[in-house]
Amino acid sequence: MIHLLHALFELGVSHVWAERRTPSLNQRDLQLINALRSQHAIPDKLHVDFTHPDQEPMLWLPDIVAGAIGLHHRGDDAMPYERLRAGVTEHVIRLD
């Protein structure tokens, strides 16, 4: 999450809406964001809020784009990745 939030801020994003999950996962996400702020790993100017997809349809778009990118990287171009490509910036983060 630190890489994603930092990359979004560098792209000029000032407000991030994340999908609300279970109460325990929401609490863990908030603790992480607060820890990142206290470590100055993400700027105070970057606002992060949580909501349900049924309350914020704009949360649907990242799922659609992520799905198209995932299918493309697996060799399945049934979804129109090429139509999205010009507007997508991919950041590869290795977790190993």
Rank of each mutant, 00 (worst) to 15 (best):
R85T: 01
K45I: 04
H73N: 15
A66M: 03
F9E: 14
T51Y: 01
P23M: 05
A66D: 00
R94L: 14
R37Q: 02
Q31G: 13
H47V: 14
G12R: 00
V65G: 12
L4T: 08
V13D: 03
T22D: 12
P53M: 02
E82F: 13
D44M: 04
L84H: 05
H40Y: 08
L46E: 01
D77F: 08
D49Q: 11
D29M: 01
L32E: 13
R37G: 06
H72L: 07
V65N: 03
P57N: 04
D44Y: 07
V13N: 07
W60R: 13
A35T: 10
M58V: 12
D76K: 04
R37H: 01
P53L: 06
H73A: 08
D54Q: 09
T51V: 04
E10T: 12
L5S: 11
E90Y: 00
R28S: 15
K45C: 10
H15Y: 14
V92R: 09
Q27V: 07
L8T: 03
W17A: 11
D49T: 10
L61N: 05
G12K: 00
L8G: 05
M79T: 08
V88F: 04
G12D: 00
A86M: 15
H52Q: 10
L36I: 00
R83G: 09
L46P: 00
I69H: 15
V48W: 01
I64N: 09
G12F: 00
H15R: 13
P57I: 09
G12Q: 00
A86V: 06
M1D: 12
I93A: 12
I2K: 13
G87K: 15
P23T: 01
D44H: 11
M79G: 11
F50L: 03
V88N: 09
R28L: 08
H3W: 07
Q39F: 07
I33L: 03
D96I: 07
A66W: 02
H72T: 04
W60T: 02
G70F: 03
I64F: 12
L8H: 03
P80I: 00
R74S: 10
G70V: 00
P23Q: 06
H47K: 15
Q55A: 06
W60A: 09
A86I: 09
A66K: 02
E10A: 13
A66C: 02
R28Q: 08
V48I: 10
W17G: 09
N34F: 05
A78Y: 03
G70R: 06
H73W: 14
Q31F: 08
A18K: 01
H47N: 15
H6R: 14
D29Y: 00
V48A: 01
H91R: 05
I42C: 08
K45E: 15
T22E: 13
V65L: 12
M79W: 06
L32A: 14
F50D: 02
L84T: 03
L11F: 15
L61P: 11
G67Q: 07
T51S: 07
Q27P: 04
L95P: 11
S24K: 11
L30Q: 11
T89A: 12
M58H: 13
D44I: 07
L8N: 05
H6Y: 13
E90H: 02
T89P: 09
D77T: 13
H47C: 10
V88G: 02
T89V: 13
R21P: 07
V16G: 04
H52S: 15
L4K: 00
I64Q: 06
H47A: 13
E19V: 02
F9M: 12
Q27W: 06
S14I: 07
F9L: 09
